[in-house]
Design a protein around this nucleic acid. Sequence first.
DNA 1: GGTTGCCCTAAACTATAGTTTAGGGTTTAA
DNA 2: TTAAACCCTAAACTATAGTTTAGGGCAACC
Lengths: 141, 141
Amino acid sequence: MLKTFSIKEVAKKFDLSISTIRYYDKRGLLPFVAKNAAGYRIFTETDLNLIKTIVCLKNTGMSINNIKTYIELVMAGPSSIDERKKLLLNHRRQVLQEQQVLADNLREVDFKIKKYESPDAESVIKNELEYVAREKKKLNL
Amino acid sequence: MLKTFSIKEVAKKFDLSISTIRYYDKRGLLPFVAKNAAGYRIFTETDLNLIKTIVCLKNTGMSINNIKTYIELVMAGPSSIDERKKLLLNHRRQVLQEQQVLADNLREVDFKIKKYESPDAESVIKNELEYVAREKKKLNL
DNA sequence: GGTTGCCCTAAACTATAGTTTAGGGTTTAA
DNA sequence: TTAAACCCTAAACTATAGTTTAGGGCAACC
C-alpha cells in the first residue's frame, strides 16, 4: 500500500514546525496537498519531493512569493518548463552572488579575528583608541 | 586638515540609505559618532572603519542586536579583546555553516536545472505528473 | 535675505516570515 | 466511551529590519 504522512510527520522529516507548514499552505505553496473528509492534510510520497524542493529554495533564500510562482509553474505542467528553468537560473545567479558576498565579508571577519589573536593585540588597540581620541579632539567633537 | 563626512556621504560610501544609518544609530550601533552644535552627525575617518565592520557583520547575517554587542565591546576598550574574539569566532562558525547550507541546497537547484535542460525533460515531467495522478487516485485523494 | 538642499527627531508604517491563541472537530487506545 | 493526542481555521501577535511621514531647524549660494 502507498504510504501517506500526517502534517506532524512531514514537519519532523523536514525540521519545520507544523504551523510553518500550515502557513506555507495558506501562502499557496502547497496546492498539491490533498485533504481527507475531516479536513486533515494528507501528504503522499511525491508531495514530499515537492516539499523538499520548497525547503531547498527557502534554504537558498528564495522568498515565499517566488517559491509560490515556481510551484504554480510546476502545477501548470510540462508547458512551463522553460519558465521554470529561467526562474531557477535566475535564482542560481542570486545565490552565487550571495555566496560571493558571504565569502568576501567572512575574509574581513577573519582579519579581525587574527588581529585579536595577535600577541600585541592589546597595545595595537590601545594605540588605535588614542588615535581616535586625538582625532576627535582635533575636530572638537 | 582631517576630513569629516556627512551622513549623506557615508550612506553613499557604504551603499546604505540615510534612514538606515539613522536607524543603526538609534539601535545603538553608532555610539562613537559625534554631533555638531546643530545636532548633525559628523563622521570621522576612523568612524568609517567601524562602520565598515558593522556592514561586514551585517553582510554575513549578524543581527543588529549582536552587532550592537560587538560595538559595545569595542567601546569598552582593550579589556574586551577576548570577548570580541569569542563573539567573532562564534559568528564565523555560523557563517561557515550557512555557507555549507547554501552550497548543499544550490547543488539541488542545479540538479533541477539540469533536469529542465535535458532534451527529454518534457516526457519525463509528463510521466511524473501521471504518476502523481495515479497515486492520488489510488488513495482516493 | 530668501530659496534650495541638507540635516534632525519622533512616530507611524511596511514587508517578510513566521508563531500563538481561541475555539472546535477527529482518532485512537485503554 | 472517554481521555489523550491529533488535526483544523481564523485571527491576532511577534520579531526583524528597515522606510516613510510630519514638522522643523541649518547652510550655502545667488
